[in-house]
Structure formats: structure tokens, C-alpha cells
Design a protein around this nucleic acid. Sequence first.
DNA 1: GGTTGACCTTCCAGCGACTGGAAGCATTAG
DNA 2: CTAATGCTTCCAGTCGCTGGAAGGTCAACC
Lengths: 143, 143
Amino acid sequence: MSAALSIGEVAEETGVPAKTIRYYEQIGLLPEPARADNGYRVYGARAVDELRFIKRGRGLGFSIADVEALLGLWRDKHRASGDVRALAERHIREIDEKLAELETMRAVLADLVARCHGDERPDCPILESLSSEAPDDCCHHDP
Amino acid sequence: MSAALSIGEVAEETGVPAKTIRYYEQIGLLPEPARADNGYRVYGARAVDELRFIKRGRGLGFSIADVEALLGLWRDKHRASGDVRALAERHIREIDEKLAELETMRAVLADLVARCHGDERPDCPILESLSSEAPDDCCHHDP
DNA sequence: GGTTGACCTTCCAGCGACTGGAAGCATTAG
DNA sequence: CTAATGCTTCCAGTCGCTGGAAGGTCAACC
């Protein structure tokens, strides 16, 4: 049978802080674990696996809602891999949007920094650009 | 003299929602405007300029705190352009970190998606990767 | 037996940067 | 007179945690 672990041991094992584990339980991402006589949470190997899954999903930038969906698909032995792939593809598109936005910002900033001599003199193209009369519809943002 | 504008007109003029303008005032980013007899906020051209400045700074990804600092430097006629440049350079480094993180995520996801056939069959490298026994120290995150 | 100290429990509050909504005046048009 | 805007305030929610307070529990040490 699988070893019984306290929340601290699971935290140690998975690298997910105990506070975060309780939080995941609170929002329903993790099932409520069994309790020892003293009220302490008691976890098995399954919880460790699920937490590792969650941690990796979060590490790839999936939202909690997405991780919840992926966890559901993972538990479902009859899932279609197409569903998983669709979720991942949508996430890649979101990442691409953020990348494009950040790259635009970076390019504008790098240009401004290059044109700013950066000494004690007060004239500065960076501030001039931020306060100029030009239209500022340059940077698109999500709705 | 400069035209007196209501909050709605300033919002229209700058593209910053009235709610956000009030929020900026509340957190001290914008000074409290004059009030008409009926209690309505009354703005001048200066507030419009400052809001445009803020909007552009936010559009370049600067935090509110950074925008506040930039606004201070902008108002200070004796500022050193080096201070502005240092702030912008630090921001570029933060953007570079986010870019690197997102690019790593994207690469991992793209690889997983490519290896997932994505049909009705349940076997899926994406889920396998999330649940594998391999160490998951692959993705670094900020402290 | 007493007392640390490390662990566990609960609940509440805060981060950033807004955004939405409720409840209530002000002003203007019809 | 009423309806439609627009303005005011304040409170709550978003997302994903994280910190802290106040207290219970357990093993070890003197």
C-alpha cells in the first residue's frame, strides 16, 4: 500500500508549497484528502502524482481552469487525445499573442534607449516619446 | 486658457476609461482635479497630457510604479536622462526574461503537440509528459 | 513535568491593475 | 413629468497565490 504523507511531506516531494496545496483543495482543483485523528491531512501516492501533474501544467503556462480540464482528461481513460491537443494548441496561440506583444514593446524600448544618451542632461527621447503628440494606437492589447 | 473637461470627455480624448482615471487618482498616480459646483471632476489640458503619458507607458509594459517614477522625471525639468534610461533598461531586461520563459513554454508545447496524433484514441504524449516520472525542474520561474 | 520548536489547523487580508455593479444626484430633452 | 445620460461614491470580484495571526499537536530534550 502507498505511504501516508503529511502535507509538508507532499510539499517536499512535489515542490509545491503546503499553502498552495491547501489553496488547490479550497478551489476544488484537488479532492479533499483523508484526515488523521488529529485533523491533519493525509495524502497517498495519487495526490503526489496529481500535484506533479498540476505543477508541470502550470509550468507550461496553463491556467488553473486549463489544468483542471487536463486533469479531468488525464483521469478519463477513454478521453480523445484530440481534446488535449486542441487545448494545447489554443494555449500556444495565446502564448504567441503575448510573445508578439512583448517583442513589440522590446523593439520600441530598445530603439528609445539607443537614442537616449543617458547622462546628466535632461533631454531624453524616451520621455519625449511618451509625451509626444503622435497618436498612440501603436500597441494592441487584448480585450 | 485651456478648456475645462469632464471625466467622460477626458476618457474620450485619451482612450483611458473614466473608471480607470478615478482609479489612478485614488492610488495617487494622478493629482486630485478641481471640482465643479455639482461635485463633478473638472480637468484641464495638463491632465490629458499626463493621462496620455501614462497610457503610453503602460502600453510599453511599465508597471504603475515605474510610470509614476517616469512621470516624476517628466515633470522635473532638471532630471538626468540617465535615470530614465536606467529604468527603461531594467524594464527591457524584465521583458527579456518573460520572453525567454514564454519561448521555452512554446517550444515544449509545440513539440508535444507535434507528437500527439490528436484523434479519438486516448494515448497522448501531452498528458504523458505532464504525468511522467521525469524530474520537472525544466522550467525556471521567478522567485 | 515542563518547555522548546517544528509542524499542523483555520481564517482573513493583500498583491497588481483594473473592472463591474449598485445606489443615488445632476442635467438635459422631449 | 419622465426618461436618458452622465456623474458621484463605495464595495466586490478577477487570478493565483502568499503572508500572517491565533491556536492545536507532536517529538525531543532537560
